[in-house]
């Protein structure tokens, strides 16, 4: 597993302080991050692949400073967004998956082979040549996962990947996240999604307020909701 370290990380947008004094070392296989809307959890995970650069402190992935080596870090860390519509950049399903393999020095045959394998893994083979925008919401999120995993990252960060999905699709994505060999970091409001993870972190008003085994951390989060 990758080792992701947050050291004295703080983030503010103008006067508003979104994260303060965050110190974390993430080395577990599956990590859940929960917290209220606007608690800073999305900002926190965006720092792992350099989508957001902290205003103070440093984030490192396997010893690489994300602020200075963002491109190398992004090859190790794949990111899944809440709304797959914004993640799909190419017009057809197959093209979107193949897009992740550009500029990697792969031959067209290798790209075709890996794309086909990824589509097969996520049950999208029959939609390979269909326009991506015609897929259902669940299929779009599967496509987003396929497009990220085809690049073989060591870590997957998912920001509320099941929020827009129906119960069945949410469960399907949840099961996939449970079985991936990659390190998985999931931000979610679906608490049951992370109940069997290795570690759960609770963020409240920009600070880590609970961190540990899911049972204990989720109990602390539920207590906060009272």
């Amino acid at each position: 597993m990758s080792s992701i370290r947050f050291e004295q990380v703080g983030q503010s947008f103008g006067d508003r302080c979104v994260l303060r004094n965050v110190n974390l070392s993430l080395t577990e296989h599956r990590i859940g991050i929960v917290g209220a809307n606007g608690s800073g959890k999305s900002t926190l995970v965006r720092m792992i692949n350099g989508l957001v650069t902290p205003t103070s402190g440093t984030v490192t992935v396997d010893g690489l400073d994300v602020a200075r080596h963002a491109r190398d870090v992004r090859r190790k860390v794949g990111f899944i967004f809440t709304n797959p519509d914004n993640q799909i950049v190419m017009p057809t399903v197959q093209e979107d998956v193949a897009f992740s393999l550009r500029r990697r020095g792969l031959s067209p045959a290798e790209i075709a082979e890996r794309t086909a394998a990824a589509l097969e893994q996520f049950g999208l083979s029959e939609h390979a040549e269909h326009p991506a925008h015609r897929l259902s919401g669940g299929q779009k999120q599967l496509l987003a996962l396929a497009s990220v995993l085809v690049a073989r990252p060591a870590t997957i960060v998912a920001d509320e990947p099941t929020t827009l999905l129906d119960a069945r699709n949410a469960r399907r994505i949840g099961e996939l996240l449970h079985t991936l060999p990659q390190q998985v970091i999931v931000v979610t409001h679906h608490l049951h999604l992370v109940e069997e993870f290795d570690r759960v972190i609770v963020i409240e008003e920009g600070m880590v307020v609970a961190d540990g085994a899911p049972a204990q951390a989720l109990a602390a989060y539920r207590a906060l909701l009272q």
Binding site: N49, G50, L51, A70, R71, R74, R75, G78, F79, F81, N83, D85, N86, Q87, V89, F99, S100, R102, R103, S147, V148, A151
Partner: peptide
Amino acid sequence: YAADALGEALVARGLD
């Protein structure tokens, strides 16, 4: 907003 999100996705996918 959608353009912003798409830009973020492009960066996350290595077009930075």
